[in-house]
């Protein structure tokens, strides 16, 4: 199997079946999507702005930050 093809887009972990991401970045993206609903209601902001703000928060976990930065730069969603 091609090593690169097998890997998550954001790290060197093996990607999940039918996804571009490993289980952890996939979980982080799911959390971002869930959190966005709260941010949108609270601050009336768009997805891209949310990703930028979330990636700058110190409380954001490492994988969620990596996913937020990647998605904010135009990376495809899961």
């Amino acid at each position: 199997m091609n090593w690169v093809m097998d890997r998550c887009r954001l790290c060197e972990m093996r990607r999940e079946r039918n996804s571009d991401y490993c289980a952890f970045h996939l979980e982080a993206i799911k959390n971002l999507e869930e959190a966005y609903e709260v941010w949108r209601k609270a601050l009336q902001i768009e997805w891209t702005e949310f990703l930028e703000l979330a990636s700058e928060r110190p409380e954001t976990g490492q994988w969620a930050r990596e996913a937020a930065i990647y998605l904010s730069m135009g990376g495809r969603e899961a």
């Binding site: 970045h25 979980e27 971002l32 976990g61």
Partner: peptide, 12 residues
């Protein structure tokens, strides 16, 4: 650790 690393904060 997984919970912390994939955590996304929400404002209040």
């Amino acid at each position: 650790e997984v919970e912390i690393k994939s955590f996304v904060p929400t404002p209040f």
